[in-house]
Design a protein around this nucleic acid. Structure first.
Lengths: 188, 188
DNA sequence: CTCAAATCTTGTCGATGACAAGATCGCACC
DNA sequence: GGTGCGATCTTGTCATCGACAAGATTTGAG
């Protein structure tokens, strides 16, 4: 139970997921290799298949974990729109590997029941974070449209940040830059 | 010059790029295979390497082409902010393969000089599209911040749309949905 | 204590990317 | 009109990868 010795690893599933996060942070999801993960974990090349079936299975598990981590982060931000937006960007930067997998439907099985459920939990947290518009800026009509606009702007900023597409003038702190961007949406 | 006969293909480079666009649209960039492209083009498995060096080289060429197509699309939209935003989303949906490669730095050589140049051309077109804010909504301070917010919201919407992450209530026409989202940024 | 299921290993196959070496073509130059 | 050289494409090869099959080891329920 304490480590990696013995025939049975003890907690291989978790170790593989953690190694996958590490590997994706280093070289992106495209370069991910199950055999490399097995080497990192000190097990044989076929061990990962037992826990995840195939590569898409491992990434499916990673996506589920990612949506749950995102839901948790958004809940922690409370009902404040600005805080929720910053939390979204902060999650993307802080859990880059999860985030990069979650929105790449060609990499995993988006229709798996666990994925649907986790995605729904994150969606509920997101809607809750957007539900409270700033005072003096009541919803004029379509609250769903407000939510979509808010999601779009934070998702776009996070994606551009992660892609390294933003010019250097934006600065080095994603939270500060994100705040300035979000403010322009509902505090014009 | 007219086709694929003979030892020399005639226009293999272009044919391979077109086949790559097709293949990426079918199965995503992760499933792209140089040997599959060679089969589609009717050439040997090593022919692509001559034109692009390696897989990253082919995707680099695809990214350059994508940034140039984007610049062209944005210039076509003129100086209208709303039109430029819709054009951005329209480009992402209409040139899905290019767009999915352009913002994935782990897939190609983002520091190649041709990439830097093409990216700069697209960036200039983008800034020009955002330069003219709607009447009655003059820039209060930071025009660069306005541009970043506009880029973020259209990029985020396009990415979420392509990922199939948006709920069905958004509707089937990305241009209409994008217009509604963009309007919330500068016409609150 | 026994045995079945869970876990991991070894072995293998087809596919892939990258590289090397050779064949063929086209064109500038004489 | 030839000729040689560079560009283009082919064939051959190797290490790596994902997936699968079959076997070995361990755990734990009964």
């Amino acid at each position: 139970m304490t480590g990696t010795r013995g025939y049975h690893h003890g907690d291989l599933r978790r170790v593989l997921l953690t190694a996958a996060v590490q590997a994706i942070q280093e070289a992106g999801p495209a370069a991910l290799s199950l055999r490399d993960l097995a080497r990192r974990a000190g097990v044989s090349h076929a061990a990962p298949a037992h826990h995840f079936g195939d590569k898409a299975g491992l990434l499916t598990a990673l996506a589920v974990e990612g949506f749950d981590l995102l839901a948790e982060a958004l809940r922690g931000a409370g009902d404040d729109l600005l805080a929720a937006g910053v939390a979204y960007v902060d999650f993307a930067v802080g859990h880059r590997a999860h985030f990069e997998v979650m929105f790449r439907p060609d990499l995993y099985r988006t229709d798996a029941p666990e994925v649907r459920a986790a995605r729904e939990r994150a969606g509920a947290a997101l809607r809750s974070g957007v539900s409270a518009l700033p005072p003096g800026r009541a919803t004029v009509g379509d609250a769903r449209g407000d939510a979509l606009a808010a999601w779009s702007i934070v998702h776009g900023f996070a994606t551009l940040w992660l892609a390294g597409a933003l010019p250097p003038e934006v600065g080095g702190d994603p939270r500060d830059a994100a705040r300035a961007v979000i403010r322009r949406l509902f505090w014009p």
